[in-house]
Amino acid sequence: MTGGNAMAYDVAQLLAMTQKELDDVFTASEVGPIPDGQADGTAIIAPGTAYSAEIAKIINLFAWQGKVFDAKAGFLKNRITPFGLNAIIAKVYKAPSWLDGKECIVLDYSDTSVVAHWVRDEIRLISPQLYLGKVYWDHKRLIDFSLQF
């Protein structure tokens, strides 16, 4: 797997980027294949600030650790809580991005989750084994995240 970028990124670099830089990486990247297997997730909150990496560590510890994809079935489960339980299911498919209209991988919770019914994630492959994601709540952008396979 290779990303649509000539540059290789890592999670530490993403945590240091501004929102505009994250958006630029996302829009410059190709969609990539729908992933399969377990990914470690990192929430990117307050991008471009000194707090981003610390917030990510706290979220990973207490709330969200990542996602487990079943590409063949077109579903994923989120790994949440300190015990890494698999919960909150989403449908996975390719469709136009709400950010730029180009193809992305959509993680759609609208039909699969009471808790996250209003949530839609979009991901693109930005480096080998690394996806960058955008989280929307009822069409409003919330945060970014990364998935490392």
Rank of each mutant, 00 (worst) to 15 (best):
A87Y: 06
T49F: 07
I105P: 00
D70H: 04
V31W: 04
D36M: 05
Q129K: 12
F145N: 04
Y109E: 01
G133S: 10
S127F: 03
I105T: 02
E30M: 12
S127H: 03
L142G: 13
K140I: 12
Q148H: 13
S97L: 11
W64F: 01
V114L: 12
F149A: 07
A90G: 05
L142Y: 08
F83M: 07
L99M: 12
K91L: 08
N5H: 11
K72W: 05
K20I: 10
A73Y: 06
T49A: 13
S97I: 05
D144Q: 12
T27E: 15
G48Y: 04
G41S: 00
W137D: 13
I123D: 02
I80F: 01
V11M: 03
L85F: 13
S110N: 12
A43H: 04
S113P: 01
L125E: 12
G66A: 00
K77I: 05
D23N: 15
V135P: 02
Y51L: 15
F62G: 14
R141G: 12
M1K: 11
L142W: 10
T42K: 00
V106K: 09
V119Q: 09
A95L: 09
H139K: 13
E54V: 09
P47S: 00
F83K: 13
I58E: 06
V114E: 14
P47R: 00
Q148V: 10
T112C: 06
E21Y: 06
A43Q: 08
F26P: 05
G3C: 08
K91M: 09
G48F: 07
K134Q: 13
I88F: 14
N78D: 07
N60T: 07
G74I: 09
G133D: 07
Q38W: 06
S146Y: 03
S110H: 13
V106D: 01
T2L: 10
S127P: 05
L15Q: 15
Y109W: 06
D36I: 02
A6K: 14
A39Y: 14
M1E: 14
F69Y: 15
K134M: 11
P35N: 03
T112Q: 11
A43L: 15
D70V: 01
A50N: 10
L107I: 15
L142H: 09
D121A: 03
I105K: 01
V114H: 10
A56N: 00
K72N: 13
G74H: 06
G32Y: 05
N86C: 07
K94R: 11
L61E: 14
Y136F: 15
Y51I: 08
V92C: 04
F62R: 10
C104S: 15
Y136G: 03
K102L: 02
I143C: 08
E30H: 13
A63K: 07
Y93P: 07
T42V: 03
W64H: 01
A6F: 11
D40V: 11
A43C: 09
T2Y: 11
Y93C: 03
E122G: 08
E21L: 12
V119C: 07
E103S: 14
D100C: 09
A95P: 04
S113D: 01
T18Y: 11
K77N: 05
R79M: 11
A87P: 03
V92H: 02
L130K: 04
